[in-house]
């Protein structure tokens, strides 16, 4: 009995010993888990699955998306931060988990700027300023004037504290001094529904969420908060061309636990880059109202810079709101 157990342990140990160097040399040798800290079907999930499928082909191993929702995405990201930095656990966080979270969750178990090995931004989704169909103002200039005069009578809808529409709305309203009543919904769907139904007055949300309603004319779009027009909404002007100083994009970013070896980081970035340059994915991005990171925005340095600048921009606004 003792003998067999000992040989079994020895065999397992031998297996482990021989397996380890092989892993380091020809990563990846087994499926990679990509943690998405939100429920399946959301904007982060969709984009992750899109690029993960392409990356799987480049890497020759399946990337399995694992949805670990909870606490505005911070539970999944906490788990990613605590995982082994062996390249078999990566994660895709968003603007909320990677820059707003420290201001919203005092007991956060990770620091977006230091707890991860950054890989790259996966996509930017510009925010669009939208209102119910019947709101008077015809263009952005009129809207800003109208809000200035009437904002206290109006209702701003958002998808819950910590959601993208909450953060972007906060920044928008704070920047221009608007004080609407905030109506909280659980998720974007119900909020949009009430915007279409005219129960609430305006929102600032990801283009991805509002494109169908804008193109079908059930809600009004004033501007895309982005330097260039986006392909899915060619007729909607940008804040930049209208001379309004409000640029705001939601974004998703791929990260790995801190301490990921450089060669694995490069391999993942290379696979992601290939996916982002694929015409089919570029086309999908356009349909979604998203843009891929280009030039300096792509890669670890660009992501690190983005995280730091977003934390610096968002934290004071949210902290001020919490008194």
């Amino acid at each position: 009995m003792k003998f067999t157990r000992r040989t079994a342990i020895a065999a397992i140990a031998a297996l482990g010993v021989t397996a380890v160097p092989a892993v380091a040399q020809q990563y990846p040798t087994k499926p990679i888990t990509a943690i998405v800290p939100f429920a399946a079907g959301g904007p982060t999930d969709v984009v992750t699955r899109l690029v993960a499928e392409h990356m799987s082909r480049t890497l020759g191993q399946q990337i399995v998306v694992e949805n670990i929702g909870g606490a505005g995405g911070t539970i999944g990201m906490s788990r990613a931060a605590a995982a082994a930095p062996d390249g078999y656990t990566i994660a895709v966080g968003n603007m909320g988990t990677q820059s707003a979270a420290p201001a919203l969750y005092p007991n956060l178990k990770y620091d977006p700027a230091t707890s991860f090995t950054q890989i790259s931004v996966v996509n930017f989704t510009p925010q669009t300023i939208v209102s119910k169909k019947g709101l008077e103002p015809k263009d952005l200039k009129e809207l800003l004037a109208y809000l200035k005069a009437n904002s206290e009578k109006l209702n701003y809808g958002h998808a819950g504290v910590g959601s993208i529409s909450y953060v972007s709305g906060f920044v928008f309203n704070a920047q221009f001094g608007f004080k609407p009543a905030l109506v909280a919904y659980k998720g974007t769907g119900p909020a949009l529904n009430d915007l279409v139904g005219g129960q609430i007055d305006y929102m600032v949300d990801q283009s991805l969420n509002v494109i169908p309603q804008i193109t079908s004319g059930t809600i009004k779009a004033y501007a895309v908060a982005h330097p260039e027009r986006i392909a899915a909404l060619p007729d909607v002007p940008t804040t930049k061309e209208l001379g309004v100083d409000f640029i705001f994009s939601a974004w998703n970013a791929m990260v790995a636990p801190k301490g990921l070896p450089k060669d694995i980081q490069d391999k993942l970035l290379d696979a992601l880059s290939k996916a982002l340059d694929d015409p089919a994915i570029i086309k999908r991005y356009e349909d979604l109202g998203s843009t891929a990171p280009k030039g300096a925005d792509r890669g670890p340095a660009g992501l690190q810079k983005l995280v730091e600048s977003e934390v610096a921009r968002i934290t004071p606004v949210l902290k001020a709101a919490a008194k």
Binding site: I12, L15, G16, A19, T29, K30, T33, V64, E66
Partner: peptide
């Protein structure tokens, strides 16, 4: 169903 449940201890590779 391809559920992402760990199958064996990670030591063994999968």
């Amino acid at each position: 169903l391809h559920l992402p449940i760990p199958l064996l201890p990670p030591l063994l590779g999968y």
